[in-house]
Design a binder for these strands. Structure first.
Lengths: 193, 193, 193, 193
DNA sequence: CATGAATGAGCATTCATTCAT
DNA sequence: CATGAATGAATGCTCATTCAT
């Protein structure tokens, strides 16, 4: 009774199909017609929800970023230690990346792509403002090495991306857990004072 | 005798134009006709050197990787310490990335793109085999933390990419020097024992 | 309610335009864009009905063969004499050829062309199986000269083609009637016992 | 000493390669570059002998027609009977067609093609004027049925073409001889009085 | 005469987008 | 809201032809 395609269902299906196809075949090989077919809707319907292919791409990027951000904020611990909170971010990010391979891959693929507008990137960044605050707190309390906050965030981002991508390629569920832990060790040893 | 199109010049011009345009506008937004025009050659000439657009992209990727690899091997120091050699790699890579922004950006953009064939990636990786040996030596001699070599290489790669990309965005030649040094500190502190 | 593009009309228009243009200018000199324009549809529309130019050519060949076959079977007389039925085939074929000059010319032009696939030829041949049966009956009843059936059919085909082509070049409606009759005389005298 | 590619050798090689390729792959699939390569000469060389692809095609057509005509005139018997001379033409034509499959196929393929200019066709026809005279003589002496000479020539042409093409498809050297004889019987019975 | 790199007009085909139903 | 046939601008690629060597 509830599987009958509830209102708004179509938008989700289109987004899901788009993530899958873009990751598998890339941008140019994925036509809007194919996305629509994979999503089980008509060609025209896609344009009812996303006014153009460019809009769709950017929506996808935001969707991915929002998913990740939400996951990071979910169990975000309170005041305890700055290190604990960093630890939480690290593991939550890796866990999300490994659980959502398509969305994660999409993010890395389009991270520095000209298809993603500045606005999109800016919105995604602002959503992760709390991470920046954490870094600032770490610097202020002397827990972190004295490094420009933006550079430190970039390094965090780069390390997580490298770790998840690496573990995704060598699919070994057992090694994954350990890899995340080891990479965390490298990162924290590097930035902590 | 100097400058004016010395035979074989055309291939270089096409590669240069392609790097520039792909970085600015992305793969599909850059038509072969535009690349040819920007390179100052006829449309057909492009296909004389690269049998298809896909072949061009892969050639570009290899060109970039080869350029970086050559630069890394250039002043590669002998036996001294593992740390010294790592230091050389780090700084050489960052220097190259900052000096060749288009090629570097191209590499990050297409790193995980479906346009780049496995063969291309494999060839590029094999050229950097000496880096893998260095890691192994570091692990054997106990200079590095006990981490899977591949993961460690991935982290090195990710850290360099994050650093260069970050410094390119905030163009400040003065800060660049310092940034590379600081990021190196983070990385080495993280992986050294 | 009449005339003005009654759904499915487009396919017909494309076929008509293609017959005309291919006969006038040949295969390669006739661009798909020109066919579309002549048919009054958009370029893309042609590919909606025929997935490639090669498919279009083969469809045209089948269309022509089917038209001819249908016309031959239309008033095909029953049991009477084998000669009467041959006479029907001869005149019906010539009549159709003179009435559909473009389709007929197309058939002769592409008869031995590499553009027409074996499948296409086979299908067209199977549709004319009843002619083969007639020949067999003629041989069995001793009405025809003892000649391999395939050779006899080839000669019939060749004679009709030569006759119609000849009469088309010297357009003289009056002479046409007589020419068909005279050629029939030659053919039948040649094959009958 | 004499195999060293004598003067004018290149023209022959180009013609031979062109016959082969056009028959195998058709007009559009056969590029001038391919013909040149198959002939073992440079691209530009082809245009030294034939100023354009269209000129080459027409030269090929003339070459084929000339070859056939020469063969027909070779052992052309003197005054004896009209029937004997017809017989000679028939067998000589079939023999040539079976011995030169590529040239023969080329002729049938381009017989009614728009690529062959009227001039070319006219020249080829005038070379075969002696055949027309034979027909006229046959009509005048009452040896042939009273049929327009052009139509009779067209039927002769059509019958030879059909016979050779048919025998070429069903390659059976033994059957070939018999087939030519049987087809001749059909033709002569049809046109003789 | 011969070469083959270079040219660029031309073509088949695709695909984002629209709109009548 | 949903559909999918229709559109036509845009693109990758080909190939006849030229010309400097």
């Amino acid at each position: 009774m509830e599987g009958k395609a509830d209102k708004g269902d179509k938008r989700e299906k289109i987004i899901g199909a788009a993530f899958r196809l873009f990751c598998q075949q890339g941008f140019q090989a994925t036509s809007t017609a194919l996305i629509a077919k994979e999503a089980g809707v008509a060609t025209g319907t896609l344009f009812l929800y996303f006014s153009s292919k460019a809009v769709l791409i950017n929506a996808l990027y935001q969707e991915a970023k929002a998913g990740l951000t939400a996951h990071l904020q979910a169990g975000y611990p309170g005041p305890p230690g700055v290190g604990d909170r960093f630890r939480h971010l690290w593991f939550a990010a890796c866990r999300w990346g490994l659980a959502n391979p398509d969305a994660f891959r999409f993010m890395t693929m389009f991270r520095s792509s000209p298809y993603i507008w500045q606005v999109t990137r800016a919105e995604a960044a602002s959503a992760a403002a709390f991470a920046r605050q954490l870094v600032q707190e770490g610097l202020d309390t002397g827990v972190l090495q004295p490094i420009p906050p933006d550079l430190l965030l970039a390094l965090l981002d780069g390390a997580v991306t490298a770790t998840v991508t690496h573990l995704q390629e060598h699919r070994d569920p057992a090694a994954a857990r350990g890899g995340v832990e080891q990479a965390w060790g490298v990162f924290w040893r590097g930035v902590a004072r």
